[in-house]
Amino acid sequence: MATEARKKEILKGLYDGVVEFDEDKVVELSNAVLAEDVDAYEAIMDGLAAGMEHVGDLYANQEYFVPEVLMCSDALYAGLDILRPHLSGKEADVRGQVVIGTVEGDVHDIGKNLVKMMFDVAGFEVHDLGRDVKLEKFVEEQMKTDSEIVALSALMTTSMLAMPKVIEMIKARNPDAMIMVGGAPISQEVADNYGADGYAQNAANAVQEAIQMVSRLREMGKA
């Protein structure tokens, strides 16, 4: 059993390992979490996830760019792969379910993948449909998984026009599903015009929006 000081050292090391995209360090410390009986949930939330949150700030401040964020993401997943199987009981419960994908006509998925990662680390179960996803597929997957949230991404000005269509299709089948949109040409105004329930300006903001959406659904007794 690790001492309090050792636990802090491990958590700080995981945080730094993600921020400094030191995958070896994250793997070593994640194994130390298990060997020294540190709580895996705490290691994920206060180490890995906290580190990734800081990475989000660094990206927003143009100190990190996509290549660095991808490396941080690789380090994060290396830790999650080791720690997640050791979550138990309530800690392993998912925060909610998300269907995510880049809409038909659009193959640009870097932004979508970063949002997916933030959902992953925040404890959502993510159903990733990939890129250039046919609109019907979003509807089918939402119905099949009963996901509370559908997250739609687009980079192209033409493919963004698919968003109001797919929102309409999903709402027609399940009015309670919450739809979030994001991507370079999207703004809050566009999201409102399209009838979306939320707008993700960036990956970190996507998760905050999603958590609020799930809370709203739970308050209404629909999730």
Partner: peptide, 12 residues
Amino acid sequence: MPVSEWEQAPIV
């Protein structure tokens, strides 16, 4: 090549 109404240009 672009085929659907949501596509604008060729994609890899």
